[in-house]
Computed example of a mutant assay.
Amino acid sequence: MIYTLTLNPALDYFLTFDSFVEGNLNIPKETYKLPGGKGINVSKILKNFNTDSVCLGFIGGFTGEFIKNSLSCDGLNTNFFDIHEDTRINIKINNNGLESEIAGTSPTISKENFEELLNFFKTNLKANDILALSGSVPSSLPPSVYADIIENIPKDVKVILDTRGIPFEIALKKGVFLIKPNRDEINEFFNSNFSTTEELIAAGKKLQEMGAQNVLISLGSKGSIFITKENIFIGGVPKGTLISSNGSGDSMIGGFIYGLNKSLSLKECYEIGIASGSATAFSKGLATFDTMTNLLKDIEIIKL
């Protein structure tokens, strides 16, 4: 089974304006609401690819109910844990193409809430399951939260870790199957300014020494680098018109997990990941199976 965890989900409220003027009454020309969260996006991609997963996380209040009901209507499996405070609301403003975001305050997650989640992992996860740990950690939880989860699941669970900062560093030491930092996150982690392919590969190998079996470094429009135990691959980006990069990293992970669940080779998982992330970047919304497969033929990967 595939599980995705979003510790800090949100109701994302999108507003589009022709002209937003600070200090004035502004009426948007378009609004819509979606469940937000990196792990949720991974599960959405998997659902688009006709692959089941279970969304885990903490939700509360009317905003939490919206997330749960919306995902259920889309056919996703969920197992959320109820908290007392409302799930946060993120406001995303598009002002004639200029995008801004107001991040909502995270609700409090109690020690009892977290123990309930840990008990779920202890009881339900089995060897060879896949677990995606994605996104930021609310301030009410300890930075060791992802590491604590890894310690409470079978060793053969394939953990995909997509976070940053201290939670990333602590969890990495416990050993994970895959990490997906971007260039900025690599430089932040090592307090450096790596720019060349050689420097980034060296940094990726250092991350392997620290606990990652596989390292996927996303470079935006310049492609990506994938480092396994045996090989190093450089992947390009297929041609297309960028509409929005929002969710493309999560889509890359979703595509990779799809391939992993099909027992494909790591190189094939990487190809599908690139196609999935690119299809989302070239779409209004997340990639579909068709938009992903249409790009597969255009993926170019070089083995070093």
Results as ranks from 00 to 15, higher is better:
residue 121 F to K: 00
residue 83 I to D: 03
residue 145 V to L: 12
residue 154 P to M: 11
residue 102 I to L: 15
residue 130 I to T: 14
residue 166 I to A: 06
residue 132 A to I: 14
residue 127 A to S: 12
residue 130 I to V: 15
residue 130 I to P: 00
residue 92 K to V: 06
residue 70 S to N: 13
residue 151 E to M: 11
residue 65 E to P: 05
residue 156 D to K: 15
residue 68 K to W: 02
residue 134 S to I: 04
residue 85 E to T: 05
residue 161 L to P: 08
residue 179 I to E: 01
residue 139 S to F: 08
residue 89 I to K: 13
residue 108 T to Q: 11
residue 118 L to A: 03
residue 146 Y to H: 11
residue 95 N to T: 09
residue 115 E to H: 10
residue 168 F to E: 00
residue 160 I to A: 00
residue 168 F to A: 02
residue 107 P to M: 04
residue 176 V to Y: 04
residue 65 E to N: 13
residue 92 K to S: 06
residue 70 S to P: 09
residue 97 G to V: 10
residue 137 V to D: 05
residue 148 D to E: 15
residue 176 V to H: 04
residue 141 L to I: 12
residue 82 D to K: 14
residue 109 I to F: 03
residue 114 F to C: 06
residue 125 L to K: 05
residue 77 N to Q: 11
residue 159 V to R: 00
residue 92 K to D: 08
residue 72 S to D: 10
residue 171 A to W: 01
residue 94 N to C: 06
residue 168 F to H: 09
residue 124 N to Y: 02
residue 88 R to Q: 06
residue 147 A to K: 15
residue 95 N to I: 07
residue 140 S to P: 07
residue 128 N to S: 13
residue 105 T to Y: 06
residue 97 G to P: 06
residue 147 A to R: 14
residue 165 G to H: 13
residue 121 F to T: 04
residue 102 I to G: 10
residue 131 L to V: 10
residue 141 L to Q: 07
